[in-house]
Amino acid sequence: MRVAWAILRKDAAVEMRSREIVYTTVFFAASCVLVFAFALVREGRAMPDAAAAILWIAVAFSGTLGLGRTFERERYTDTLRALMLAPSDRPAVYVGKLLGMLVLLAIVEAALLPLIALFFAAPITASPLWLAALLAAGTLGFASVGTLFAAMLVRARSRDVLLPVLLYPITIPVIIAGVRGTAAILQPVPDEAMARFWAALLVFFDVVFVTLSLWTFEPLMTEQ
């Protein structure tokens, strides 16, 4: 856990110098919402459930972008090898990277929610706890698989294309559960029973995928 914390601090320090990834990812997420707003809002009214759908699409898209960039930085300076050589448990490296990704996505989501509320007239304050729980569980599920694949893809040739190709089919349950759950609480009358079902499914997904990632990180990141 100490190693994971150190990696998170290292990544945060690098990021604080330039703020490159945070600024570009947040801007990308915001422009995503704008593009969808132009496409879907007609005569001042959005399609039903559009707010939930676009929130999750923007999170998935900007998450993919952020994942690619975080590891690109490690590849550029060839520091991933150094991280792997560090005398610590390999899974700790994964946990550190995953925590960094969660922080980044939390910032993105904090920026996205007001925009969604503004453009799609979504009542995001109706049941804030359920919204936060769904977002946290969904983000963890997305980032846990994403961090593993992004770490593996560092060495692959066409990594920019392959990351979404691999990540989207696998994270579709997260997107379905996230969108359905969020749509349930963004209705005029929030449906909390529905949100609870989807949140439970997301938590279950998180448990399975984080375990599987921690379990496979070691053999996957070992070079022959």
Binding site: F149, M152, R157, S158, V161, L162, L166, I170, I176
Partner: peptide, 24 residues
């Protein structure tokens, strides 16, 4: 198209894919 070392990546994909089916 993964280039060298893609066997492991593909292996992880298949493993996660199999684990994913019940969720879907």
């Amino acid at each position: 198209y993964g280039g060298p070392g893609s066997e492991k990546l593909a292996g992880a994909m298949a493993l996660f894919g199999m684990a994913n089916v019940p969720f879907v």
